[in-house]
Design a protein around this nucleic acid. Structure first.
Lengths: 163, 163
DNA sequence: TAATAAAAAAGAATTTTATTCTATATTTGA
DNA sequence: TCAAATATAGAATAAAATTCTTTTTTATTA
């Protein structure tokens, strides 16, 4: 009996797929034609593979990466947040609240020395202080907030080390 | 005497530019035509503005955003790294070394309770342990490493809160 | 405020790229 | 080795980016 290969191999990437993902991570605007030339294939297989990678969720989205300082955001700060109460309801409440703040660009629930790690962008120290005092610290259930100000971005996101 | 407006206004964004940047942050694959329709303009001014924003560095690049778990990277870990010695040479040495590791996708020199914050992607705990023992901890000058394992990504990068 | 240079935008034409379609080659499992 | 499934090639079409010329709007200064 015949077993459909498509069924078995769904969500299995090969070397070509990995190469495509690497190229698209480096440059989301690279053309299908350009990828095809680099991988010694024609546009059709590349086009179909890219669409498949998008459809199956390997590629979540495409984004323009901005220069935050040029955009007027001089400060990048990481905050280690510790909560008082840790029942699910309290966690959900905190997570819902924190998402509202546009200054918070990332938020992770972590296992370690504190509860949440958040990344904040602010125009300047004054705005950051305003965020901290009037927004973050005003949330109920906050026990401790420890700020780390970014001085240098030694390495910023280049691309995932796909195994 | 005439003063060129272009000279004066270089690097000054207006409302339209900000709208374009917002749209491109949300979807790097949005077409010029689509942006034009949304902002009630034709393709020419949008095309020229986008090229200007790229040329002047507001837009650093375009990237495909991948699903890290689908890509086989189950673990995301943040490490707070403290060094022993803090003279410039030692900092440069550490920064150079840390950049070599593909597992390290971000690295920031921070002012706060520790020296560096690094973000690490690993296939699994075994691989992470290998990274920690055989790569990170093997660097000279490391005083302390404190790991925080990400359990939930409450908010991941959406877009910069351009003021 | 009128004259006018500069800048921005519109509209049309052209080039390039994405996308689709059909044909061919390769791979895979019995 | 055969047949089905899959991947790729090559050509045709559709859509988008890009360029060019013209028109409109904005801003300066007399």
């Amino acid at each position: 009996m015949w077993i459909k290969k498509a069924f078995l191999q769904k969500n299995i990437m090969d070397k070509t797929d990995r190469s495509i993902l690497l190229l698209l991570q480096k440059d989301g605007k690279i053309t299908i034609k350009e990828i095809a030339e680099r991988l010694n294939l024609t546009t059709t297989p590349i086009f179909e593979r890219v669409k498949k990678l998008e459809k199956e969720g390997y590629i979540k989205s495409y984004k323009a990466i901005l220069d935050r300082k040029k955009a007027g955001l001089q400060l990048m700060v990481f905050c280690n947040v510790t909560l008082n109460l840790h029942q699910t309801d309290y966690l959900k409440k905190f997570e819902k609240d924190i998402q509202q703040f546009p200054e918070v660009v990332e938020c992770y629930h972590v296992a370690g020395m504190f509860d949440y790690l958040i990344k904040i962008y602010a125009e300047n120290m004054e705005r950051y202080q305003d965020f901290l005092s009037n927004k973050l610290a005003s949330l109920e259930n906050i026990s401790k907030v420890q700020s780390s100000f970014v001085m240098t971005e030694v390495k910023d996101f280049s691309y995932l080390p796909i195994p």
